[in-house]
């Protein structure tokens, strides 16, 4: 990679790393796993930077790498992800709020199947249309609708997510 390309890559990563890390966190539910996933994605992007740069939408390209890498990770290491009843959330535990809404949100997300979770994150966090989600996930629009509907039904079963206290705490934190 020449000097100019390397600089472009660095600029891209500096601008997008935060978003990728947050998306990865929603997909895997663990900060360290998310960092590992993003590092793997960035290494792949580094190798294929000439293709990423040439593509019309580099962000979509990288997002596709993220989704595919996450799927490959599950195929290779099915036991790597350990679900626990109480997710560690150091900041909230220290503040005396172990039942923090963020933990509940992540816990609820982790209760979904991988494809359901991917559909939810792409639809509601990335705000992508169903057709784009279907293309990224390599399935039909109908499948995306089914995954989304089932996931939402499951998320609605978490009353903590829809309680007014959750929303209040969320708003308070946002205002701080």
């Amino acid at each position: 990679m020449d000097r100019v390309s390397e600089q472009e890559y660095c600029d891209f990563v500096t601008a997008r790393r935060g978003g990728l890390l947050r998306e990865a966190y929603l997909l895997v539910g663990d900060v360290h796993l998310a960092e590992d996933l993003v590092q793997t994605v960035l290494a792949k992007v580094y190798v294929a930077w000439h293709r990423v740069r040439a593509s019309e939408a580099p962000e979509a390209y990288v997002r596709r790498v993220l989704i595919n890498t996450n799927i490959s990770r599950h195929r290779r290491r099915r036991v790597a992800e350990v679900l626990t009843d109480a997710l560690p959330d150091a900041a909230d535990v220290a503040a005396g709020r172990s039942e923090a809404p963020s933990s509940t949100v992540v816990e609820a997300l982790m209760s979904l199947s991988r494809r359901q979770r991917t559909a939810i994150v792409l639809r509601f966090w990335d705000d992508l249309p169903e057709s784009a989600v279907a293309e990224l996930m390599g399935c039909s629009v109908g499948s995306v609708r089914t995954h989304t509907a089932r996931a939402m039904a499951r998320l609605r079963a978490y009353p903590e997510l829809r309680q007014p206290t959750t929303v209040t705490t969320m708003q308070e934190t946002c205002e701080r």
Binding site: V13, L26, V105, L109, L161
Partner: peptide, 27 residues
């Protein structure tokens, strides 16, 4: 209703600034 909850949960992740050299070395 799920949209703000996802944003809020994701925003809890603190992203540390990574220097250029560090980035290249890690890659």
């Amino acid at each position: 209703w799920i949209r703000p909850l996802l944003s809020w949960a994701a925003d809890k992740i603190e992203v540390e600034a990574v220097g250029r050299d560090e980035l290249i070395a890690a890659g």
